[in-house]
Design a binder for these strands. Structure first.
Length: 275
DNA sequence: GTGCCTGTTACCTC
DNA sequence: AGAGGTAACAGGCA
């Protein structure tokens, strides 16, 4: 579930925590497939004795900068971090633990096991496939328009594609399309410039609101998004369409419907968002 | 117990 | 390029 606002919230929390400056003395890997490209042994050997220098984000990737490499983490659906005392017994979904010199540890849990860690020398190169950062100055109207014109097909799958805009997922795409009054299955070729402009503004709007609320936490079990300290986000109360099927549209009162688009649950207002 | 659902992405074929 | 399907997994839910 973590999309851009959730990953950014975690990155900020990590950056502001004691993590920066800590030295990793060893890694315990409970689920080796979490680590991409390296065996558990090679990963442990490479990461041992490195210090955490900084934490940042690109798209939905967390970038943990170490002194000799960078650790890229994609949380996929259920990845979650916490700082624990290393004496603590492993949680049932714990996949990796980085043990620090001071007796604490960074614990990584991932119920669905889809999350991936990668240790790389050059994060920019490893993440070169990602598209525009929607909250950065590179997300200009000109760049966005050029990209829309270069592609065809339905708008929702276009927005979910990380090679176009990096960091949008199912929740924020549905929210941005509602704000811009665009039907999720509208074809790119039929969008007029005013509508595209509305979408251009809606994307950072919904992301910044999510970020201000420290993310969206749906449901109440542990698998749902929580920040590093276990706090839930507050953005679920501000969602306009996502998970609101059967409820009235806050703009016009029409009942929000849910359909399936590219195998993803898709929520929209049939009155505000007409093709 | 059964079958269906889920917020992500990579990879395959047509 | 885009559409449509599958797979990786685990657990909630009816």
């Amino acid at each position: 579930m973590p999309e851009l606002p959730e990953v950014e919230t975690i990155a900020r929390e990590m950056r502001d925590s004691d993590l920066v400056g800590m030295r990793i003395i060893r890694a315990v890997i409970a689920w080796p497939k979490t680590i991409e490209g390296l065996s558990s042994g090679a990963f442990s050997q490479k990461i041992a004795n490195q210090k955490i220098k900084d934490v940042s984000r690109r798209g939905k990737y967390l970038i943990i900068s170490l002194n000799r490499s960078q650790l890229l983490v994609h949380l996929r659906m259920t990845g979650k971090f916490s700082i624990i005392n290393n004496a603590q017994k492993p949680h049932s979904h714990e996949r990796v633990r980085l043990i620090f010199a001071d007796g604490r540890a960074l614990c990584y849990e991932d119920q669905r096991k889809f999350g991936r860690w990668q240790l790389v020398d050059d994060s920019a190169e490893a993440l070169a496939h990602l598209g525009l950062e929607p909250l950065s100055s590179e997300f200009t109207w000109e760049a966005f328009l050029a990209m829309l014109k270069k592609h065809s097909g339905q708008i929702k799958p276009f927005l979910l594609n990380q090679e176009h805009i990096a960091g949008l997922g199912n929740i924020y795409v549905d929210e941005a399309l509602w704000e811009a009054k665009i039907h999720p299955q509208q074809l790119l070729s039929t969008l007029n410039e005013n509508t595209m402009k509305a979408l251009y503004h809606a994307i950072p709007n919904v992301l910044m609101r999510g970020l201000a609320n420290k993310g969206t936490s749906l449901g109440d079990h542990r698998a749902n998004y929580q920040s590093m300290r276990g706090a839930r986000g507050k953005n679920q109360s501000e969602l306009r369409v996502f998970h609101r099927e059967g409820c009235p549209c806050v703009r016009c009162g029409t009942t929000i419907v849910k359909i399936v688009v590219v195998q993803r649950g898709t929520h929209f207002c049939p009155h505000c968002q007409k093709i």
